[in-house]
Amino acid sequence: MHWLSSPDDRAPALPAVWLIATDRRPATLPERSALRRGLARTILANQFNLKPETVTLDHEPGGRPVIAAPYGSGLHISLATRSGLVAVALAHAPVGVDVEQIDLRRQLPLAALHPGEQAMLEALPSPARPLTFAQLWSAKEAYVKALGTGFRRAPESFEVQLAGLDGFAVDDPERPGKPVRGICRIIKNGGHETMAAAFIQLV
């Protein structure tokens, strides 16, 4: 697994995630989509020695992005944007990536969490909860992106268990067996906002 920070960086192998800090703050969904898709096209072109105009992204009916051209790459892609930070994940299996801002003023929506996650958060000192919530939520969103469902899958229906600041596992009753493991990071967005990023690949 490789973490990269510039659209000009090439991953030596996949899976890889590009976390790119920009000075843009798109206000609408179309603007956010245009920002992350534009950077994704640049990354794909650089990674595979293509002209950007030959790279096309589309999406499945449920919203999951797909590489439409060049056709037949066999690669899976996931995209996220928050506060000007763009995440692009590439892998050979279904993949999800998400970024969340750590907001110290936000009222945490505990009802949207699995009971085990709620209990874990409530056991923490109040100052530690915003960081942990951002880690949990980025991991949950990355997971449902990898599933291809988005939050049509109820977020409280599966449990994320954090393993320090750099890992997590997902216990999903609809996918019995060994928990799926993911990777997370805490980063600064251009030296300003503190962000939680999460990556997961379904194999």
Rank of each mutant, 00 (worst) to 15 (best):
P26K: 01
A142F: 03
P109S: 13
A89H: 05
P26H: 03
A139H: 03
A34W: 01
P125K: 06
L29H: 12
R82Q: 14
L136W: 14
L75Q: 07
L108K: 11
A139E: 03
A21H: 11
A89L: 06
K140V: 08
L75F: 09
K140M: 11
D23H: 13
A93G: 04
E100Q: 15
R105S: 15
A27F: 05
V88W: 03
G38S: 10
T81A: 14
R41L: 05
L136M: 11
V66A: 13
G38V: 00
L136I: 15
K140A: 06
Y143W: 12
H114G: 06
L131G: 14
A40M: 05
R105L: 15
E117H: 13
M120A: 14
A45C: 09
G96Q: 10
A21W: 09
E141G: 07
R24S: 08
A89E: 08
T28R: 14
A45E: 01
R32S: 09
L57S: 05
E117F: 11
T42A: 00
P115Q: 07
L90P: 00
L79M: 06
E31H: 07
G74I: 11
R64M: 02
Y71H: 14
E117A: 08
I77K: 03
I67E: 05
Q47V: 13
E117V: 09
F133G: 08
A93W: 07
Y143D: 11
T81D: 12
W18C: 02
L79Q: 06
H114L: 03
F48M: 12
T28L: 10
V97L: 04
P130C: 04
A93I: 01
R129I: 13
R41N: 04
S126G: 02
L124E: 15
E117T: 08
A139K: 04
A111M: 10
K140R: 10
L110W: 12
E117R: 11
R24F: 00
L121A: 08
L35G: 02
A69W: 03
I43N: 01
L124M: 14
P94H: 08
E60H: 10
E53W: 04
A87L: 11
L85K: 04
A40D: 04
S138N: 10
P61I: 10
E31I: 01
M120V: 03
R41M: 04
L121G: 11
L136R: 08
L124I: 08
A68P: 02
A128Q: 15
V95W: 04
L19H: 09
G38W: 01
A89R: 08
A142K: 09
T42L: 02
I20G: 00
Q135C: 12
R32M: 12
A27C: 01
E141M: 05
Q135S: 14
L44E: 05
T56R: 15
R105N: 15
G72K: 05
S78W: 07
L121H: 10
L35P: 00
S138D: 02
G74H: 11
A69N: 07
A34F: 02
G38D: 10
Q118T: 10
D23A: 14
R37V: 00
R129P: 09
